[in-house]
Design a protein around this nucleic acid. Structure first.
Lengths: 206, 206
DNA sequence: ACACCGGCTATACGTCGGTATAGTCTGCTC
DNA sequence: GAGCAGACTATACCGACGTATAGCCGGTGT
């Protein structure tokens, strides 16, 4: 469960970084304070600066650590996309931080990677499709990635709707079943979609 | 285009509120400052306090105004859900503010309303479905609402992937086509979904 | 003409948070 | 054991921001 706490990682530096991940995940970057992070890590605010230079640099170190960890998880999990295209389950303790990074807009590298993965995956899935889609794969993957990340980013709100914590077993079960249902029952019939597309085409040249 | 600028709305109070909507939408609540809002509105910081009492109260006034405007739009747009279940197009100038409200977690009332709407809509769509879904409608609606809001909340990232501004004509076209495609082509076949569901069932009782 | 009131401004206060700096302590090397 | 390096702390500085207060100014009713 505990995503591999990196041996030789009990150093103050690592403690500070972990505290920052937690604090920023909980309060967001703006509201997270160096003093608060230092307190959680059990060190002085000065030491934070000593090790990382500035608040911004500390965040970048967190980003880097997150990216590295994710790559490790991604490799050891194999290539197959998780059931229902659900990244919530995987992220574990980093979920909140990731959500902040996404919604506060500094997680572009991560998102780009998700788009890349999604693009490859869609290319595979598109093989047995009669007519090709009329949007470029990149756009489709980007929108799909955003949708896949929605429960992560809006966890607070989704939890309200589900009536269960998104990290709890019950919440995960509900979320997965909902995703399965949604992704296997299209909201629009091919005819409806074609009609809407035609309407768009009609508007486009004008 | 300009969502009805409310007659008798050239008052300083209204200008402040609009400036706040813009500033908070652009920078988020934390980073938005009373001074900046006042400057944009062309008044003194003191007047902001005079009219609204506090920063928090100002935000609540914005929320209220947004809710009211949305209700008006929703009524005059009729009941039918917008094509592809896409709230981006409708929100216009409030889009950024709404995105902030959602991702910074103070937009519960709005989200709840979306869930309610989605629930009604799903109930309708479920009529011609052989077997009933195995998740409660509320959860399904909540997850669906979150997914529908994803392009709004993660607009910055989606724009990267699309290579077009989400408010531009080109971006809207791309987004709509992507949504049409996604919502009319399920990611999972019924068999795959059933298999995954069975796996969940197996894990549940244990 | 005068008082009053609400919209509005100028200015000041207290706090908080990032940053800077000087200094202490611990462990290692020669 | 002297001296150095680096981890670590205490303290101060400075700007920014929310908030508070006192007062101005123009219009309105009597």
């Amino acid at each position: 469960m505990t995503t591999a706490p990196d041996p030789a990682d009990l150093t103050a530096r690592a403690r500070i970084r972990d505290a920052a991940l937690r604090h920023i995940g909980e309060h967001g970057y703006e509201r997270a304070t160096i003093r608060g992070i230092a307190e959680t890590a059990g060190v002085s605010p000065g030491l934070v600066r000593h090790h990382f230079g500035s608040k911004q640099a500390l965040r970048e170190a967190c980003d880097e650590h997150l990216m590295k960890t994710m790559h490790r998880l991604h490799e050891q999990a194999g290539q197959q996309p998780p059931v229902g295209f659900n990244p919530v389950a995987v992220m574990g303790p980093y979920r909140r931080y990731l959500a902040r990074a996404l919604s506060e807009g500094w997680a572009s590298p991560f998102f780009d990677e998700m788009v890349r993965i999604g693009e490859r995956w869609l290319a595979e899935a598109d093989k047995d499709r009669p007519e090709p889609p009329d949007v470029d794969p990149r756009t489709r993957a980007a929108v799909l990635a955003a949708m896949a990340l929605a429960p992560t980013v809006l966890s607070q709100l989704v939890e309200r709707g589900m009536g269960a914590g998104i990290d709890s077993a019950e919440g995960q079960d509900k979320l997965l079943r909902a995703l399965l249902d949604i992704h296997s029952h299209p909201l629009l019939t091919p005819e409806e979609a074609a009609r809407a597309r035609a309407a768009l085409d009609r508007g486009r040249p004008g």
